Simulated scan of single mutants.
Amino acid sequence: MRAIWKGAVSFGLVSVPVKLYSATESHDVSFRQVHAKDGGRIKYQRVCSIDGEEVPYSDIAKGFETEDGEMVILTDDDMANLPTTSSREIAVEKFVPVDQIDPMLFEKSYYLEPEGTGAKPYALLRQALLDSKRMAVVTVALRQRTTTAVLRVRETEAGEVIVLQTMMWPDEIRQPDFKVETGEVKDAEVKMAQMLIETLSGDFDPSEFEDDYADAVNAVVKAKIEGGEVQRTETSAKTGGEVVDLLAALQRSVEAAKTSRGESEPAPAKKATAKKSTATKAPAKKAAAKKTAAKKATTKKATTKKAATKKAAAKKAS
């Protein structure tokens, strides 16, 4: 893992130097838009909706559209005057009970690692959060914008780690514009629902769930590659490995998930084998060509020598 931010957590007079790491990564399957006929990638141009002309990137500005459809263009000077901050402080504003914050407010998660002399105050803050059953509401500047976040403790394989979770602003949470009309709910129905809940009750184990969609895509792509259903486009020489990379990434994700559940051991990757096969095949072809050229050169040399000998003999006889 690579740290994406360095700073310090400050609460009261205590300062904890820390490094920030992204705690999550997406394994969602991504596809490219291609021409179904030949597999060529689809490219998009930046075209002005008014004059229909293609616009170079240097002429593109930021625009804010008003409610009535008018466009306000913001210049580089306008953007430079906006409030930004480069503060490296995670400032604790208050400590609140863990059940007071709606999980819908949580956005992105980061791990905090103590740096240098910060190990002891880090452990102090971690234990205080656990004992008080509270989270710390903080303000932090990420990508030059100040946002609110919380600090909480998460149990990991490496031990208990402090996690920073950024939060959305309250006005970013949408309110439903519909009402749920349920009618009368009978006591017998409620009891039956409670019985069903008791029957299905248990502890949450994330390893019990897997991404069936990625698994299915992996199987389809693998079958098509093995069946030779691969489009060879003009750019295949440069980017032909990307389909295999997708397959390999999906395969590794599936195998890692299964291994974590103890179902199977990771299968050896086939990509290296394919490269090895190609590498051994190409030199063989090159060697054959070299052998043919050598044979031609030898024949030509022998013919020349034979002609010279014959000419000398004729001259001696005369």
Rank of each mutant, 00 (worst) to 15 (best):
T117C: 00
T239M: 11
E115I: 08
M167P: 02
K120T: 09
R252Y: 03
A257S: 14
A188I: 05
R152Q: 15
K238P: 00
T199E: 14
R46S: 04
K300E: 15
F31Q: 01
Y21G: 07
D76Y: 09
D211I: 00
T280D: 14
K222C: 04
E70A: 14
E181T: 13
D212C: 01
K271C: 00
A256I: 01
Q165T: 15
T156S: 13
D131T: 10
E184K: 15
T280C: 02
L112N: 02
M192I: 05
A23H: 01
V185S: 04
M1H: 07
G63R: 06
D28W: 00
I101E: 07
L130I: 15
A8D: 05
F204E: 08
A284P: 05
I4N: 07
A287I: 10
G118Q: 03
V14A: 13
K258P: 05
K300Q: 15
A269Y: 01
P114N: 05
G159K: 08
K270T: 08
A269G: 07
T85C: 12
L164F: 08
S264Y: 03
L250Y: 04
V55A: 02
A214D: 05
A269R: 00
D212A: 14
T146L: 12
R2C: 01
R154L: 14
V14I: 15
K291T: 12
V137S: 03
D68C: 02
V29Y: 00
F64C: 13
N81G: 10
T278Q: 09
Y21H: 11
M104G: 10
D38Y: 05
R232Q: 04
E155G: 04
D76N: 15
L124E: 02
G262Q: 07
E70H: 08
K191L: 10
Q165I: 13
K222A: 11
V34D: 07
I4T: 09
F178K: 04
F209C: 01
D187Y: 08
F11S: 03
A91R: 08
S49L: 05
L164Y: 06
A8C: 09
Y21N: 04
S10H: 04
A36V: 09
Y111K: 06
S318W: 09
A249S: 09
A307N: 06
K186A: 11
K222H: 08
S86Q: 11
S277M: 14
R261A: 13
E181Q: 14
Y213W: 02
D212H: 08
A248E: 12
T75F: 13
G262E: 03
S15H: 08
E107P: 02
K238L: 14
E210T: 09
L129K: 02
V96K: 01
T239P: 00
F106D: 07
T156Y: 08
V217L: 05
E234K: 15
E53C: 05
L247R: 06
K186S: 11
E65Y: 10
A293E: 14
V47D: 06
A257Y: 01
L129N: 03
V163Y: 04
K238M: 14
W5E: 00
Y110Q: 06
K305R: 15
E226L: 13
E263C: 06
A237N: 09
S87Y: 11
E226H: 11
S260L: 05
S58F: 01
Q194T: 01
